[in-house]
Design a protein around this nucleic acid. Structure first.
Lengths: 289, 289
DNA sequence: TGTAGCATTTCATATTATAAAATGATCTTC
DNA sequence: GAAGATCATTTTATAATATGAAATGCTACA
């Protein structure tokens, strides 16, 4: 066939100049990219267009397009008719429900969170580990007029949240070392812990006292406290916390609520089969998520 | 380089005999396969091993292994330490809950409300909790000439609306107690429930039957029925109801429409990821089988 | 009307995913 | 307790597949 009418001038470079001995994160590339893309879309509650999407994850438009198209075909993404923007597809919700052997955890936690919120007047949280982060599985808003802008399913860093510090304190030494070495301690406020050494001290203190605090380390306006929750294997599987605005919830107030918090955690733990005396964070022999 | 020490006798077939003009479902193969794999895992609540997994989706073990390994690396799958079985990972939960916001609820509810209104001829509503009240997120007018004067975004009390009673029935005991103690039961009509004791009985009845009614408790001229809507955490996150003028919508008529209402709620719930048998309001805390 | 940004398609190519086979590891069975 | 069976994992050659540059066609805005 003669050259196409448009004569596309197929001067062409090889698809990539070969990155030359760069680090290769294992696994199948396209799957990894598809997941990054999904997460980027999930981060955009109002939807996101292809251009911004591909920019945000550092892929060529064309590549991102192919991936997105595949995900749309599978229903994992939806494309809004007018704007062409992408949103998460409903079938993913069904998949997510399978992630919940947590269902039992959540069902157990919910009434206790409600009670704790009632007793303290502050917002209560229950979180577990997910990778190197903490995910909030359930919460209950406090009685006050303000609502903390933090949703179930939100993924939070470990180094600057009370819930996260509890989990860190439950790490076995090697894992903690590994975390402290590799972790990026993202800084949110003046008060955010920013060195591994500081964090190690803080964790030692959490182990000693059995309770973790966050005094304005994520947001200057918030204070939190958290304690561990254990299951029938006596392993720490999550943490329970309360959180409130700094101007109302002083450090002293937090300490006053510590007893209620501890008791709530003990009840939750015992519902999950933990026996006898409540496990303290510092005890040896711990497991990760 | 000379043959490797182990000399693996690499007699080899081409990776595939080329399927020859088979149907080609578009999209990126590995992503499609990864999703099939995820869904297969999701279908196995107790986890599934690699062999059965690869069999069930028709992939070679090796291929399935690579895909699974990638997904494990990303956290989308977890591998149980002992059995090596795979289960769905928590990041998927986080992904879904990030995406399931108010906008999503509304857009999921809208077509179902339309259909419900069409089927029953009455006005349909979808509401969620906001503070100690219920807020109407979406509605669809019935076919009749009369329009109920009630707009989207309206905030309604819990004790005298069908939508609200459903939510009350979903409260854990402590929270319900707290509500009953502190709530001001505003009186609108002769029929409005005005004592905590009465309300507690009514809620018990809602729990038993799985459906709530409002028989002229807000306005003498209106009757409503409502049932719960759940999401992928199996939590009751809202309620779906129909409402119409008392002179047309008798109690019997309401009961006749109850089935349609239930079915609509189930469809909405399943779109939001709720699995299997629809959760009844009354269940203490239901468990996964 | 022109230009700019975006979504989508096409296509040559090399990167990448694939599957056969080998290798252990673990569990059955006789 | 050895032989077999089943399963998970690693390796590797190969070809199929995903990739990205460029082209194309949108829509919108000035």
């Amino acid at each position: 066939m003669p050259p196409a009418p448009h004569s596309r001038a197929p001067k062409r470079k090889p698809p990539s100049p070969k990155p030359e001995g760069e680090k290769r994160p294992g696994g199948i590339q396209s799957i990894r990219r598809a997941c990054e893309l999904l997460e980027a879309v999930a981060r955009s509650p109002d939807g996101i267009g292809l251009a911004e999407l591909s920019r945000s994850i550092g892929l060529h438009t064309s590549t991102a397009f192919h991936i997105a198209k595949t995900l749309v075909m599978l229903g994992y993404l939806r494309q809004m008719e007018n704007s062409r923007f992408y949103r998460i597809g409903r079938p993913l919700f069904a998949l997510a429900s399978a992630a919940l052997d947590e269902v039992e955890l959540i069902s157990a936690a919910r009434p206790i969170l409600a009670e704790l919120a009632g007793a303290t007047g502050e917002t209560s949280y229950f979180g577990v580990m997910s990778g190197e982060k903490l995910v909030v599985l359930a919460k209950h808003d406090g009685s006050g007029a303000i609502r903390i802008n933090d949703r179930i399913g939100n993924v939070r860093p470990l180094h600057c949240t009370a819930l996260g510090k509890v989990m860190l304190a439950s790490f076995p030494p090697e894992q903690l070392d590994a975390f402290l070495q590799s972790a990026q301690l993202q800084v949110f406020t003046r008060k955010t812990i920013r060195t591994a050494q500081q964090l190690r001290q803080e964790i030692a203190e959490v182990r000693r006292s059995g309770i973790a605090f966050d005094d304005g380390e994520v947001s200057e306006e918030l204070r939190c406290a958290a304690v561990p929750v254990t299951n029938f294997t006596n392993q720490i599987i999550g943490s329970l916390g309360i959180s409130g605005p700094s101007w109302r919830l002083s450090i002293q107030a937090l300490h006053k609520n510590a007893t209620a918090l501890q008791q709530a955690a003990e009840r939750l733990s015992s519902q999950l089969g933990a026996r006898g005396n409540h496990r303290r964070v510092g005890d040896p022999e711990n497991r990760q998520s």
